[in-house]
Design a protein around this nucleic acid. Structure first.
Lengths: 341, 341
DNA sequence: AGATTTCTGATTTACGTACCTCAAATTTTG
DNA sequence: CAAAATTTGAGGTACGTAAATCAGAAATCT
């Protein structure tokens, strides 16, 4: 049978109280005694029964998610996933709160972070903007002992405890690889559509994309990057413009959101002359576009995984526990029309 | 604060014992009373505290994994993952046992299943062979109240409780899509390499691959399927043969294991004339081959996810609980050299 | 109506850990 | 060496649920 604290106490020849002190790092145990207990733990292979421990502690974690008030499908999904986490929170011993801030606005994000800090939560997850003032605000949170996780988009590694998102550089490189191969022998022009280069995820995707394209597919020409703030209407307009100016456009890499606008334009094109299109995030619209051959590939990050991972990570960090890196890695899903879930 | 059974009892005006009877489906409660209690549960939004329940029950699940004694990297990884699950089993209230059987041998699998049944475990996971006698053995297990999950390769849906693996038909279709596009304008000949068409996962991949190729890329010619029993040496030999007979071979889809043999042959080829190669399962050798451009894409299923999912599913089924389908879906990973983890 | 069966209530113990108190034993310090 | 400080032991309660017993109440049957 699994050994319990009682077994440890008996084996080590000490009392239950002492075992408890050792296990929970409480003071008042001599080094010799502590060693005895730790040896007993090692020898009997004791592992703390988490169910019992949680029950006894009845600890609850106060967490806060700061999300941009963006109305693209991805952010809506992300918010829904946080809300589902809230629905589960009773079971998970967590109290989760959502704070909305204007998108792409470092100042608003910083003041939200400072306000949140006043409530002294155990952890904060935020969709970061990679700016010095945001990093400073994150540092302030951490200085107060609040765990900080970035969600979807990162800041410099030193200012947060963990990043819950994909390797965006790899995503950009993958997109370039697919683009280069899908274009095949056709030397073409490729347009790149971003939300904003203020956010690190978009920047990293762009860099990855450009580097692989330059190295492995040097004959592909690249148009200047279009920033459309993840807004469908703006995306639509800019894509229409680009197609007018470059009728020979043979590829589009949409590395941000707002793909509804892009798809509206694609629908109007002659199927024979449709460019190769690679986009990010599987939503209702990109899924339909994949299915009807308007989009060729979708790179996806699963917001559900990201949110659940963030909750786990923040809890662990709040308790000073290590994070299981392998488990928390968020994967890049590649969807073609044939492997849609 | 979260309501407890005591709150339910007070609210419904019944005793704790009655609430317990309702919650755990024990007999001896009148319909009217049961309704009262259920209403109280609904109104107070009671959710059973799993930590406490598990603690009180101190139930342990006896599970058994029947694995083929195959020595390809994938099966080795799978076994390692089961061993890790065993290492975790103390924490997870499970006792997990591994039984090895010869690969591709329905008779051996069936006798292993029957032997396992004698020990009356709570659940059995097996890498299935899709044969009538295996289905019958699975039916026998389930008739004895033992939960059955198929791992990696499935049998007919009616004979098991759950399949822990990828949608192999979608994997085959995806491979065909990539193959068709990577071949681009070149009308080529494609060779297909399978382990054995006795196992359903290989059959399904094949069917998916053929159907998409026929429909979307009709100009691609397909050579007769080669069955190499997932054995590296046999794979090497058959691929060498195929290349000799068809010097114009422009694509290879390796839908089974034993890719070490394939890679050995690929290394010897003139890089300029190397065929497009799509393989399954990210192992040390396929990873290196991806990296050095010998393989173009690898479709992968994560054995870790599959094993963990199997454990969760078997536990749930053993308790007669429903399975959260969305959570247990195993994804098809697509790896190019640019998104290797 | 009386006997029988079926419900229901009250109470208790157990699960394994956390956390608290108080007293006793031991070590350290002056 | 005595006083002070530290370490340890003993014991208890709590967490929320499961599961059991036993007695009493209500419903059903004859």
């Amino acid at each position: 049978m699994k050994p319990t604290v009682h077994d440890i106490a008996r084996f080590a020849g000490v009392s239950l109280a002492t075992v408890d002190r050792v296990l929970n790092g409480r003071p008042g145990v001599r080094g010799v005694t502590r060693d005895k207990v730790e040896q007993a733990i090692a020898q009997l292979g004791y592992v703390r029964d988490l169910a019992a421990a949680n029950l006894a502690k009845s600890r609850t974690y106060n967490l806060c998610f700061i999300l941009p008030a963006n109305d693209n499908s991805f952010m809506i999904r992300l918010r829904e996933e946080v809300e589902e986490a809230i629905a589960r929170s009773a079971v998970e011993r967590a109290r989760i709160e959502i704070v909305e801030v204007p998108a792409f606005d470092p100042g608003a994000l910083v003041s939200a972070m400072d306000e949140v800090a006043d409530r002294k939560p155990d952890g904060v997850a935020l969709v970061a903007i990679d700016a010095p003032e945001v990093r400073a605000a994150a540092d302030r949170l951490r200085a107060e002992g609040i765990a900080v996780a970035t969600l979807v988009s990162d800041v410099g590694a030193s200012s947060r405890d963990h990043f819950c998102g994909i390797d965006n550089s790899a995503a950009g490189r993958t997109a370039a690889n697919l683009m280069g191969r899908f274009l095949s022998k056709v030397d073409g022009r490729v347009a790149i559509l971003a939300g904003s280069l203020l956010v690190r995820d978009h920047r990293e995707r762009l860099e990855g994309f450009l580097s692989v394209l330059a190295e492995d597919f040097p004959r592909v020409a690249i148009l200047p990057v279009i920033e459309a703030l993840d807004d469908p209407a703006m995306v639509e307009k800019t894509v229409r413009d680009a197609l007018r100016r470059h009728p020979d456009l043979s590829g589009i890499y949409s590395l941000g959101a707002g793909n509804r606008g892009l798809i509206r334009v694609l629908k109007e094109l002659d199927p024979a002359r449709r460019p190769v299109v690679i986009a990010h995030e599987l939503t209702r619209s990109t899924r339909e576009a994949l299915h009807s051959d308007l989009i060729d590939a979708v790179l996806n990050q699963d917001p559900g995984h990201e949110v659940r991972s963030a909750v786990r990570v923040l809890k662990a960090k709040a308790d000073g526990l290590p994070v299981l890196t392998a488990q928390e890695r968020i994967r890049i899903d590649i969807f073609l029309k044939d492997n849609l879930p």
